[in-house]
Design a protein around this nucleic acid. Structure first.
Length: 422
RNA sequence: GGAGAGGUGACCGAGUGGCUUAAGGUGCACGCCUGCUAAGCGUGUGUAGGGUAACACCUACCGAGGGUUCGAAUCCCUCCCUCUCCGCCA
């Protein structure tokens, strides 16, 4: 959520942000309603002040045995007037709220304006490998080595659910351990293990709701949602808190499965492991002082990149244009790993700075010192990394002409083998 | 799932319709006192909104939302959460 004061003072910039992000929200109408709101508050508050004063006098009069019937009758009509004003105020505030929650975060000034085509490659790492044999895509290698089972995944839960088996399952587990160890031991994160099912408010807090309701698995009986990313429970850990400034920054990492209905996605990316309804991910979340968030975004990106560097997989980093930015993000880097079997760059991480947008939605503030004014914190998160697409890259990058997969050096101590031979 | 007890400020905790403008305490800040320390004394110490050039001032907030009343932390209704016991269960 944006600050109403900011919107009042910068209406044209906010309207531009709504447009550039491809959202729909009537900012002008909201500002009109905001003026009406303030008029109603002023009117009602004056009457309430009168009512408070006179009611106190009525109590005093009663105590002294004087008659207060006239004042009581007068205050009854005042109360009725107040009720009417309050009802109008409530309606106006609801309408303001409905627009406000659909206004996206402002893109940072460094973010290119435009759609996907304007995404900017800001870095590449490693060389795209040349093979002297015909490379296979992972959806052929995996089933042949009996480490990926697409058919039985679908049998259990439908299309785009997958089963990992044997060394495939071990590879997933090894990657999770590698990433958690790296982020905890080298990057200063604290590991947390959180619920995978959360309340509606949590989805609102990080900005998935109201926009993405159709993309999530919803448990109707309890009005709970399966998390689409660990961002949701981890960022919300401290919601409604007033943190001491000296506790910041907070840096958390968590492994969780992620559940996505992918309601709006069509055929092209759905083969193999590219877009599945349930996948594993290690996520990093930071809760920081406002002045630190841009530096923290860069180190967050570095922490995610480090995983691919250790795995020795070539990748590139994109700065997303406004049209590709998520609703809550001010700026976002995507990391894409090269998958030689399918000859594609695959997104394995998004590292975003949300500024105070999520903090405002989840009421998460801090005080620099005792007695200081409360301020909203800044929040960030980044995948570190999403597992299935990392597995695709490993399978395809480390395939051999004998049809086996070499286990990346850094994973060998976790897997106990040097190659996957089926 | 059943029964019971609870939810009040940074924290503890009192408060069954109007001297509550949330007592008292702890913590914290400032001041006084003191050779120093400790103790003691005094003053102050929440959030949000409105308002102001800035103050002042006003309104709301005692888990959430409704209701009764001239007036609600207090009475009524609905819901949420926490704890204890029982049942079931990995």
């Amino acid at each position: 959520m944006l600050d109403m004061k900011f919107i009042r003072e910068h209406p044209e910039e906010v309207k531009a942000a709504v447009k550039n992000k491809g959202e729909k929200a009537d900012v002008a109408l909201m500002l009109d309603l905001d003026e009406e709101r303030r008029r109603l508050i002023q009117e009602a508050d004056e009457l309430k002040a009168e009512r408070n004063t006179v009611s106190r006098e009525i109590g005093q009069a009663r105590k002294e045995g004087r008659d207060a019937a006239e004042a009581i009758a007068r205050m009854k009509t005042v109360s009725d007037t107040i009720s009417g004003l309050d009802a109008r105020l409530k309606d106006v505030e609801q309408r303001i709220h409905d627009i406000m929650i659909r206004i996206p975060n402002m893109p940072h000034e460094s973010v290119p304006v435009g759609g996907e085509a304007e995404n900017r490659v800001v870095k590449t790492w490693g060389d795209i490998p040349e093979f002297d044999f015909t490379v296979e895509p992972h959806w052929d290698i995996g089933p042949r080595l009996n480490i990926l089972d697409f058919d039985r995944g679908a049998r259990l839960s439908g299309s785009n659910f997958v089963t990992f088996r044997g060394a495939g399952a071990a590879l997933e587990r090894a990657l999770i351990n590698l990433m958690l160890d790296l982020h905890c031991r080298e990057h200063g994160f604290t590991e947390v293990s959180v619920p995978f099912i959360v309340r509606r408010d949590m989805m609102f807090g990080t900005g998935q709701l109201p926009k993405l309701e159709e993309d999530m698995y919803h448990i109707e009986a309890d009005d709970l949602f399966l998390i689409p990313t660990a961002e949701v429970p981890v960022t919300n850990l401290h919601r409604d808190e007033m943190l001491d400034g000296d506790r910041l920054p907070l840096r958390y990492t968590a492994y969780t499965p992620c559940f996505r209905r992918e309601a709006g996605s069509y055929g092209s990316d759905t083969r193999g492991l590219m877009r599945i309804h349930q996948f594993d991910k290690v996520e990093m979340v930071k809760i920081v002082r406002p002045e630190d968030s841009w530096d923290e975004l860069e180190t967050l990106l570095n922490s995610a990149e480090k995983v691919l560097q250790l795995l020795e997989l070539p990748y590139r980093v994109l700065m997303l244009a406004t049209g590709d930015l998520s609703f809550a993000a001010a700026k976002c880097y995507d990391i894409e790993v090269w998958a030689p079997g399918i000859e594609r760059w695959l997104e394995v991480s998004s590292c975003s700075n949300f500024l105070d947008f999520q903090a405002r939605r989840m009421n998460l503030r801090f005080k620099r010192e005792r007695g200081a004014k409360p301020e909203y914190v800044h929040t960030l998160n980044g995948s570190g990394l999403a597992l299935p697409r990392t597995v695709i890259a490993i399978i395809e990058h480390y395939q051999t002409d004998e049809g086996t997969i070499v286990v990346p050096e850094v994973l060998r101590k976790y897997m106990g083998v040097e190659a996957i031979k089926g």
